[in-house]
Design a protein around this nucleic acid. Structure first.
Lengths: 232, 232
DNA sequence: TGTAATTATGACAGATCTGTGACATTTCGC
DNA sequence: GCGAAATGTCACAGATCTGTCATAATTACA
């Protein structure tokens, strides 16, 4: 289960708050690091290159604001998106925070959902390639953004329908689907297409995958097809 | 922020455990309901149609096992996927649980990540439509699974390139992109295509979006294009 | 083994999609 | 207002994609 969870650095001097946020984010599939002061934080950012920093406004020593500004000036850390955490309702701070280079600003207390939502939004804005993670199996990589498939770096050419078919299979592994189900799921409910057409696209998909991967698409006689990494 | 969080019903007689799981799942973007006994649980399943039930093995009155079996026999509830929660390491129970119709089985104590991962896996297996959430803005809905766009229920027709272009824009709002950037991001790195081609596809996309939504794609003279819900 | 059912494969014509060039229109600086 | 630059729009030809049919290969079962 090699989840492609983004790494999030939480900077707050209160351990309980750090912990709370960390547990929360881990539930959402993120990987967390913690720092209680700006020195540790800086080291972690440089070393571990987190995808995002959650930065408390109030910190002993250097203030969060100051720290954010410093991060944005430093070439090595300027790219990391920052969300500032702060006590309730100080609109002035918001402006200051955003000017200092923070990408978003969230007011305590905040709901878990809000945090995750903001975090996603910022990652979405700042991540070059998009949101969804590629799906990978046996060196076969499906990129939900580029609608492209690669096998050990080499691009695999296939038509849109084959791509969607493969996408469906890669997200619904180890289970057989009837032609009708595939038509519903991949072609989309209300179109009239011959069931046999599925066979043809399965054929095209297998061909596109080549000898190395075609065995992933297995025929379940009398039933339909299945995507599985295990031999049948 | 109308997140498309799936509804999860947590059935456990210990309120503290329910609460813990609930908080955790809400962090991950799910919507939770709780029940402390099977009667309440059944009512909730029928009424609110949760997308998944987390069912504790040990329950007062009817056992979790018994309840699972009952749910699977009842037409009104047979479709709901079930994950059984149980105390550590009783492999026999696992078999019983799965035979009773549970879709997965998780042993306490479990890590938040594990729970979410299992939950996702089961939802993925059992959910007809797929994983990723649709992106929505102003009644314009982009479905990353079906590669389909709808505007207030009506399907919006466009070619694959237009779809990808729109997808890119909807995931990178409020910021202008040059033609070169768009070619890189949407067409994918190393292809030689005229820059002006982007204009044409922008045109096609606007046309496909129709009067109601075409204004979302804004021209930034001298720079490129931007997707924004705010007027320029 | 023989036969019927099921699946694999190849070819094809129609439909759709794409990139480009040509020309119209808009915008901006002077 | 004028002219140059940038963008909008259209039509078209080549390429790709799709669904279907016909036929071969495989499988299951009597």
């Amino acid at each position: 289960m090699s989840q492609n969870g983004k790494k999030i650095l939480i900077v707050d001097d209160e351990a309980s708050i750090r912990e709370m946020i960390a547990v929360a984010l881990e539930m959402a599939g993120y990987q967390c690091m913690e720092a209680s002061n700006t020195q540790d934080a800086y080291a972690l950012i440089v070393d571990d290159k987190p995808h995002m920093v959650l930065l408390d406004w109030m910190l002993p020593g250097t203030s969060g604001l100051e720290f954010a500004r410093r991060l944005k000036r430093d070439d090595r850390t300027a790219e990391v998106p920052i969300i500032m955490l702060t006590a309730k309702g100080e609109e002035d701070n918001k402006v200051l925070g955003l000017e200092a280079g923070a990408d978003d600003y969230i007011t305590k207390p905040f709901s878990p959902r809000e945090l995750v939502a903001r975090l996603k939004a910022v990652l979405r804005r700042t991540t070059p390639q998009g949101i969804e993670d590629p799906i990978e199996v046996n060196g076969l990589v499906l990129d939900p953004i580029c609608h492209r498939v690669t096998s050990d770096q080499d691009a695999v050419d296939m038509g849109p329908t084959e791509y969607r078919l493969l996408q469906f299979f890669m997200t619904h592994q180890e289970r057989a689907y009837s032609r009708t189900q595939l038509l519903d799921q991949v072609w989309g409910g209300n179109v009239y297409v011959e069931e046999r057409t599925v066979d043809v696209h399965i054929r095209r998909l297998r061909k596109a995958l080549g000898p190395q991967h075609e065995h992933l698409i297995q025929t379940v006689r009398g039933t339909g097809y299945r995507f599985s990494t295990k031999a049948s």
